[in-house]
């Protein structure tokens, strides 16, 4: 067994263990994914906290006098501005991309979770055979298999879609309700948790702006194409992210209003 398979196997067994506790409840596998996501969110809390810390440092920099001065001084010389920004980053020990690093570290977790959902659902004989062999001794294979993949109106092993009375070739599974919810919650999460900036032409502000557009579209597309179990994970993790930030008082509600981000940053500055 490769190290990656071993890593995924830990995920599979945890997910199935949660499922086994809930197996008498209708929609147990969907609930297991939600509980598993909460568990992962708790485990990855230090990473999220580090991400938040980096974001806070970046936010404070946006309101720093020296930072604002160089923005003004080199407004027409972008190359020089970039050099000066880098100098300040270096002097203050800030990595502008360090807020992305925890996300990158979380990628294997997302991939492993996806694989654990797919492996658990085992929709071919080979997949089922491999699943029976990766289940730990503490779980009763005979009672556990097969998993009930139904959750609400969805089959978690298939892409979600509500059937339409007419055929649209690019919507083979019907109306993608879950994909829209994924895109919406991703947008809300990135918008609400991105620190406001006084200078929208700043690199990090531009990057955050692009992230606000591209990430919801990308995850929405995943939700439309991939098994809906993954979409349930995306929605849960987005909502948990918003709740977590709200509990820490770091939600930027004003960012939802047109021009709200700039107003929030300006009011903070004064």
């Amino acid at each position: 067994m490769s190290p990656w398979d071993l890593f995924v196997s830990v995920f599979v067994n945890t997910l199935l263990w949660i499922y086994s506790l809930l197996s008498d409840i209708p929609g147990a596998f969907g609930l297991a994914i939600i509980l598993f996501t909460i568990l992962i969110r708790i485990v990855t809390w230090p990473l999220n906290a580090s991400q938040l810390k980096s974001a806070k440092a970046m936010q404070e920099l946006q309101n720093d006098k020296e930072w604002l001065a160089i923005q003004k001084k080199y407004a027409k010389d972008r190359e020089k501005l970039a050099q000066e920004q880098l100098r300040i980053y270096k002097e203050r020990g800030i990595n502008p991309f360090s807020s992305c690093l925890p996300m990158l570290i979380q990628l294997p977790i997302i991939f492993a979770l996806y694989q654990s959902i797919m492996r658990s659902l085992a929709d071919t004989p080979l997949a089922l055979l491999e699943l029976t062999r990766s289940i730990g001794f503490f779980l009763d294979v005979g009672a556990l298999i097969p998993l009930d993949s139904r959750f609400l109106w969805m089959d978690l092993g298939r892409p979600e879609g509500i059937p339409l009375p007419f055929h649209i070739s690019w919507l083979p599974n019907g109306f993608p309700t879950l994909a829209i919810i994924v895109a919406l919650t991703t947008y809300l999460q990135t918008k609400l948790t991105t620190p406001p900036t006084a200078n929208p032409s700043d690199q990090s502000a531009m990057m955050a702006g692009m992230m606000n557009i591209y990430l919801p579209l990308l995850l929405g597309w995943f939700a439309m194409t991939f098994p809906s179990g993954l979409a349930v994970y995306f929605i849960t993790t987005n909502l948990l992210g918003i709740i977590q930030y709200a509990m820490m008082g770091r939600i930027h509600w004003r960012a939802l209003l047109p021009g709200g981000a700039r107003k929030a940053a300006t009011s903070k500055k004064h």
Binding site: I110, M118, F222, T225
Partner: peptide, 9 residues
């Protein structure tokens, strides 16, 4: 790439 490589649909 990661998710697609992990299987996609």
């Amino acid at each position: 790439l990661g998710l697609s490589a992990c299987g996609g649909a």
